[in-house]
Amino acid sequence: MKKNWWKIIAVVFVLYTIIAGFLLKVPAQPILHESIRNLYFHVPMWFSMMTILFVSLWNSIKYLSKSNIESDLLASQAAHTGMLVGALGLITGSIWARYTWGAWWVADTKLNGAAITMLIYLAYFVLRGSIDEEQKRARISAVYNIFAYVMLVVFLMIIPRMNDSLHPGNGGNPGFNKYDLDSNMRMVFYPAVTGWILFVVWIFTLRVRLEKVKRKIYLND
C-alpha cells in the first residue's frame, strides 16, 4: 500500500473530476454551451500525452548516455502509452469539433499538427520493428525519439501559436478567454490534469512491468 498512494490519488482525482465536472457550475458561453465541460476530459488527455512522451524522451537520452537496455524498454513503453492517450485526445477532440465547429475535422494548424505528431510517433514504432539487433534498435530509435519530441513541440505548441486557429489557446482566438479567468473551472481542471497524468503513469508502469517479466522469461529459456 505504501508505494501505491499515488495510484489512489490518481483514482480519487479523476473520480472527483467526473462528479464535479458534470455538476459544478460552468460559465455560459455561446456555441459551447454545456460542452465546455469537455475541457475536464479532452484537454487532460493531451497533457498526459505530453508528460508520458517526455518520460519517453528522458529515457531515450538516458539510454544514449548509459547504454542500459532498460532505458530503451522504458522509452518504448512510454511512447506506446502516449499513443493511447493521444488517440483518445484526437477522437474526443473530433467529436467536440463536430458539435461546436460543425465538422469532424477541419484543416486547422492545431488539428493537423496533432495528427502529424501521432504519425511521427507511429514511425518510431515502425523504425523499432524494422531492426532486429537489440542494441542497434535501441540506439537508432533513441536518436529518432529525440527528434520526435522536438517535432511534437513544434507541431503542437509553436506552429499553432504562429497561425490563426479555431482551437482555443492559439493564434488570435478569444473563444476561451472568459474561462481562462474562471475559477470554478480551475478547481476541476487542475485536479483533472494531475489525476489523468498519474493514471496514465500507472498504465505505463503496468506495461513496463509486464515487458520486464516477458524479458526475464525470454532470457531464462
Partner: peptide
C-alpha cells in the same frame, strides 16, 4: 493542491457577473 484552492478562491471574489444569458441545460 493548496495553492490551486487558495488561488481560485481569490479569483472568485474578483469575478464580475455581467453576462448575456446563454441557454444552458
Amino acid at each position: 493542491v493548496l495553492a490551486f484552492c487558495s488561488g481560485s478562491m481569490f479569483a472568485q471574489a474578483m469575478q464580475s457577473a455581467t453576462q448575456a444569458p446563454v441557454e444552458m441545460a
